[in-house]
Simulated assay, not measured.
Amino acid sequence: MGNQELPERAPRLRSPNSSQAYARVLGTRAGKFVEFEFSLGDGDLAVELILPLLAFTEFCKDRQVILLPPAEAIAADLARLAWRAGQPGLLRRPEEDASGS
């Protein structure tokens, strides 16, 4: 196998805000941890992470994450976990706060 020239990659189109962070809660573990998917930009690449609830909320706050809605059953589990940890309303979106709902 000699030196073969690799084909040039087409430039990747970026969205206007390719650094926007997103998270979708996938579930909870042991009643203490939040399992979630995290991505930047358009979501072509995401990583799954697990953090304690309070660390998850800090992680999201520090990165100005937009929380995507989880499945209904997962939302109920997360709401119970957040309530026990003194963090009710964790899944509330900022626009819901602004509208007063």
Rank of each mutant, 00 (worst) to 15 (best):
A23W: 07
A23S: 09
R24I: 10
V25C: 12
V25D: 11
V25S: 09
L26G: 00
L26M: 15
L26C: 06
L26T: 06
L26K: 15
G27F: 03
G27S: 13
T28N: 12
T28L: 12
T28P: 02
T28M: 12
T28W: 09
R29F: 13
R29I: 00
R29S: 10
A30R: 14
A30V: 11
G31M: 00
K32Y: 14
K32G: 04
K32F: 13
F33W: 13
F33A: 12
F33E: 08
F33I: 07
F33Y: 13
V34R: 07
V34Y: 01
V34E: 01
V34F: 02
E35N: 14
E35I: 15
F36V: 02
F36S: 01
E37N: 09
E37W: 07
E37T: 12
F38V: 01
F38G: 00
F38C: 00
S39W: 11
S39L: 05
L40M: 12
L40T: 07
G41E: 11
G41C: 05
D42P: 02
D42R: 12
D42F: 02
D42M: 07
G43K: 01
D44H: 00
D44C: 03
L45A: 12
L45Q: 09
L45W: 02
A46P: 01
A46G: 05
A46H: 06
V47T: 10
V47A: 10
V47E: 08
V47F: 00
V47I: 15
V47H: 04
V47G: 04
V47K: 02
E48T: 15
E48I: 15
L49Y: 04
L49R: 01
L49V: 10
I50W: 02
I50N: 07
I50M: 08
L51K: 04
L51D: 02
P52V: 03
P52C: 01
L53H: 01
L53V: 05
L54M: 11
L54Y: 06
L54I: 07
A55Y: 08
F56G: 04
F56A: 00
T57M: 14
T57K: 10
E58I: 13
E58F: 15
E58R: 15
F59V: 12
C60D: 13
C60P: 13
C60T: 12
C60R: 03
K61P: 09
K61W: 14
K61A: 15
D62F: 09
D62T: 11
D62N: 15
R63E: 05
R63S: 04
R63I: 00
R63V: 05
Q64G: 13
Q64H: 13
